[in-house]
């Protein structure tokens, strides 16, 4: 599966904010690290703010802070804010609708969908942050 760019940016942004909870981080800071425009990031932060996951601090030295619970906020919570149809795997659509064959294929696709949702719903921001610092990820980066 592939996440939309906005979903990925939202996850990366929250990871940045969680890493430095005592500092207000600007969209320019995050944009520079991930090579993305501040306009695009501002839209993402706006959605996260409406969901209560970040708060903005205005004025000089202002920026964003994470306002959720890193041990409770899951990747699924974030992704569902940005995937307009909800997080769904491949679908059979209208082709062969009402046939046993399409229903059988639908059973398989739902199994995939359920697994994806269970995985994303069980990884919290705190867990993803730990994962990013673990040896296998660091080794993959170095190679």
């Amino acid at each position: 599966m592939k996440l939309q760019v906005a979903s990925q940016l939202a996850i990366f942004s929250i990871l940045e904010l969680v890493a430095e909870p005592n500092r207000q981080i600007t969209v320019a800071d995050i944009g520079a690290k991930y090579g993305i425009s501040t306009n695009h990031l501002a839209k993402v932060m706006n959605v996260l703010g409406r969901a209560g996951l970040v708060r903005s601090v205005r004025g000089a030295g202002g920026g964003f802070q994470f306002s959720g619970n890193a041990r409770r906020t899951t990747l699924l919570d974030i992704i569902e804010l940005f995937e307009p149809r909800g997080l769904r795997g491949p679908e059979t659509g209208e082709l062969g609708r009402h046939t046993a064959e399409a229903a059988a294929l639908g059973v398989v696709l739902r199994e995939i969908d359920d697994t994806v949702r269970a995985t994303l719903g069980s990884i919290t921001i705190a867990t993803l942050r730990d994962l990013a610092t673990r040896q296998p990820v660091q080794a993959a980066l170095a190679s």
Binding site: R71, T74, D114, T115, A118, G121, S122, I123, T124, A126, T127, D130
Partner: peptide
């Protein structure tokens, strides 16, 4: 698969 809190615990 639907036991979210235990799943989060073990993942954590």
């Amino acid at each position: 698969r639907d036991a979210i809190l235990p799943m989060q615990f073990f993942r954590g």
